[in-house]
Simulated scan of single mutants.
Amino acid sequence: MERRTFLRGAVIGTSAAAFGGTLMHGAAYAAPAQNGPGPYGALGSADANGLQLPSGFTSRVVARSGQAVTGTSYTWHNAPDGGACFADGTGWIYVSNSETTPGGAGSVSFNSAGAITGARRILSDTRNNCAGGATPWNTWLSCEEVSLGFVYETDPKGVNAAVQRPAMGKFKHEAAAADPVRKVVYLTEDESNGCFYRFIPTTWGNLSSGTLQVLTAGAGTSGSFGWANVPDPDGAPTVTRDQVSGAKRFNGGEGCHYAGDTVWFTTKGDNRLWQLNLLTGTYELAYDDSLVTNGAAPLTGVDNVTGSSSGDLFIAEDGGNMEICVITPDDVVAPFVRINGQSSSEITGPAFSPDGSRLYFSSQRGTTGSSSGGITYEVSGPFRA
């Protein structure tokens, strides 16, 4: 069964049904993804930018920390991290966080041919803006990865001022993913005993007020899950992850991606990709490097995640072999790109252009191993539709 039709969910048997966020007996869980040949073939030799790519793909450098973005006066920020793309007329905008203090975020505009047409700062004077997520109303949620950190809602074009969204909780935020079907935003927490949350806005499209909930489940790697209200989203005097009995713990929440009634999120402490099957109210492992049985695990340092229209997931490594790996709808995991000579860095911010033909991402510390050495790339080629 392909992810694009049911996205590797728990399959309900003919005599089973899901009620109220729990699954009755009869569900069959998919096995975590395994090493295999990727859909794009083997990686070639490193190109002029130090990237190894499959045949037919090319790369270019979009921006470097501390240098003006080509054709603009905007100096690209240090430590580029989480990112997303937004349609902008006939072109698009790539947004990127800055995981430093002060942190913030910037963005680059492209025309329909992919030429850079502008760049600007869209968020300033914040702390360690790590990942985040796009909203259906075309704003960027930039998340502070600090104790009692905030979510900031920003304008990719830099026209409207950024707004702090305290109703979404104060904790060590990492990523966000909007679910327009259930009208909620999912949130990860980068703590070794962190939780997974969802925010239910009072009015969809307005994040100024609403209810913060935490995922509740057993201790296993699969089963049913539920949600419980977080009594005090400001995290004081008790941190949000300790306010609800039965809240499920995750080892270092990182990237988060929603598509087709499924939400995936990664945990870096145990190199796992988790999958919530929202139609069935069940969760399972989509990937675990310790469960790869046919050779060495190709994906380690599991971090940011995004998806393509084909149903493929693209997962960036924090360390590992400095790769972005692809996990296909039939549960095969393989490297898609490898960056050479940057072992003291991590790959961040993978995001596709609106037409799916270009993949953007950054090497947060580049060749120098310093936050001032960040490099943001674009890869173009025959991505699967």
Score class of each variant (00 low, 15 high):
residue 101 T to Y: 03
residue 377 Y to S: 05
residue 37 P to M: 10
residue 29 Y to K: 03
residue 294 N to R: 14
residue 341 G to Q: 05
residue 322 M to A: 07
residue 321 N to R: 14
residue 350 P to T: 07
residue 63 A to D: 07
residue 240 T to E: 14
residue 120 R to M: 00
residue 286 A to Q: 11
residue 12 I to R: 14
residue 356 G to I: 06
residue 362 S to K: 03
residue 142 S to P: 06
residue 31 A to Q: 14
residue 349 G to N: 10
residue 379 V to R: 06
residue 262 T to S: 15
residue 135 T to L: 13
residue 92 W to L: 06
residue 308 S to I: 01
residue 43 L to R: 09
residue 321 N to G: 13
residue 321 N to Y: 00
residue 286 A to G: 11
residue 108 V to Q: 00
residue 104 G to R: 05
residue 135 T to C: 07
residue 65 S to K: 01
residue 264 W to E: 02
residue 287 Y to H: 00
residue 80 P to M: 06
residue 201 P to E: 09
residue 154 T to W: 05
residue 385 A to V: 13
residue 207 L to T: 00
residue 282 T to I: 00
residue 324 I to W: 01
residue 134 A to H: 08
residue 141 L to C: 11
residue 273 L to Y: 02
residue 53 L to V: 12
residue 319 G to L: 10
residue 234 D to K: 09
residue 90 T to A: 15
residue 38 G to Q: 02
residue 15 S to C: 09
residue 195 C to H: 08
residue 22 T to D: 06
residue 274 W to N: 07
residue 327 I to E: 07
residue 84 A to M: 03
residue 188 T to P: 03
residue 188 T to K: 02
residue 245 S to K: 12
residue 205 G to A: 03
residue 164 Q to I: 11
residue 362 S to D: 03
residue 358 R to M: 10
residue 239 V to G: 05
residue 269 G to S: 11
residue 149 G to E: 07
residue 258 Y to K: 09
residue 118 G to T: 00
residue 144 E to W: 03
residue 375 I to A: 04
residue 239 V to T: 12
residue 255 G to D: 00
residue 42 A to E: 15
residue 42 A to F: 09
residue 27 A to E: 06
residue 221 T to L: 12
residue 48 A to E: 14
residue 62 V to E: 01
residue 94 Y to D: 04
residue 233 P to A: 05
residue 4 R to Q: 13
residue 172 K to G: 04
residue 236 A to R: 13
residue 381 G to H: 04
residue 276 L to D: 01
residue 49 N to M: 07
residue 183 K to Y: 02
residue 140 W to G: 01
residue 279 L to E: 11
residue 335 P to R: 11
residue 117 T to S: 07
residue 259 A to N: 07
residue 249 R to M: 03
residue 364 Q to F: 03
residue 34 Q to H: 12
residue 246 G to P: 07
residue 107 S to D: 03
residue 28 A to F: 06
residue 223 G to D: 10
residue 141 L to Y: 00
residue 163 V to N: 09
residue 174 E to K: 06
residue 188 T to E: 06
residue 221 T to E: 14
